[in-house]
Amino acid sequence: MAKTCSKVPLVSKIVDKLLFERDDIQVLPRDGTTMNLSIKDIQIDKDIPVTPNVVFPSEVLREVIKRSNYHFIMNFCICRVSSDCKDYPHELGCLFLGRGTQKISTKLGRVVSANEAIEHIEKCNKAGLVHIIGRNKIDSVWLNTGPKEDLLSICSCCPCCCLWKMTPDLPENISGGLTSMMGVEINFDSKLCSGCGKCALGSCFVNAITLKDGKAVIDKKNCRICGRCAEICENKAITVLITSDAVVRSIERIDKLVDVKSE
């Protein structure tokens, strides 16, 4: 479907209208891969002490979860189950917030408290999954939850995720709905790159990394800054830089999409 959308504009318009209209989803870098912009010039081979000023992207999830009146966890990840994923837990499903969750069938999952929802995303983080958060129309359609403005999706993704699989083949008017977190940027130091290729071989969900002349090359246009490459790079040639106000900016962006406080 994704490839057809790229080739046939009319199909792209129809699919966008039905499943992706006005999507706005942020990719949160994995905790532990980010470095504050204010300390980016510290020598890379020295220990950087963890201080209260260090920004953890997952704080976006915790804050939004606390604000929401409704929390629903899927009993399984539909993507990992359908792909028979061998590397990540099938039972760690999506988390949904907002009043739209009241319409989701309890055959698919369960209503939980805010604390249980936070415990869930912590389990997902420990399992090595990548968090994405935002309004995803396709979820409101297949779950039949009503207006897309009533449902906020928090997915914890691995390479099996259908959205990530489609993104490289979707036209920009659709794939542009999946973007990096507010206030982050990817930084690459070619001098530290050994050309081992680990970052290019399977770590990038959108195939934004290639090797050229013995060095990694990052396509920043396609990169969503999930941090997996930074996490796997033993030479610390790749880092994710984050501003001190990144969490606040990201939450403000989310607040405009779905009113999770609404009864």
Rank of each mutant, 00 (worst) to 15 (best):
S250C: 04
T145D: 00
C124E: 12
N53A: 15
I138V: 13
G195F: 09
V240M: 00
E122M: 05
T179F: 09
C193T: 04
S250Y: 02
K256M: 12
V15K: 01
E185H: 08
A208F: 13
I133G: 05
V54G: 02
D259H: 01
H120P: 07
C77F: 06
N53H: 14
S244K: 06
K165H: 11
I14E: 00
S140E: 07
A208R: 12
L143T: 12
C85R: 01
T34I: 05
D47S: 14
S38R: 12
S180E: 13
S6W: 10
M35L: 15
S83E: 14
I254Q: 02
K198E: 14
L97A: 01
P57G: 11
K220V: 12
T34F: 00
S244R: 00
A117K: 03
P147I: 04
F205E: 07
P57R: 03
F205Q: 09
S38Y: 06
C85S: 09
L129S: 06
S262M: 07
L151R: 03
N235F: 01
S153H: 04
A216N: 07
C199I: 05
D255V: 05
G109R: 03
M166Y: 09
R135K: 14
A2E: 11
N53M: 15
S6P: 01
I138S: 13
P159K: 11
F72N: 04
V111R: 15
C199K: 03
S38P: 04
I65N: 10
R110T: 13
E122V: 00
V260W: 01
Q102H: 02
F72T: 06
L10G: 03
K236M: 06
A2I: 05
K198F: 12
S156Y: 01
L37K: 11
V50S: 13
K7A: 07
C158L: 04
M182S: 13
L37D: 09
S38I: 08
K215N: 08
F205S: 14
C160K: 01
I225F: 07
V260N: 06
V50H: 12
Y88A: 04
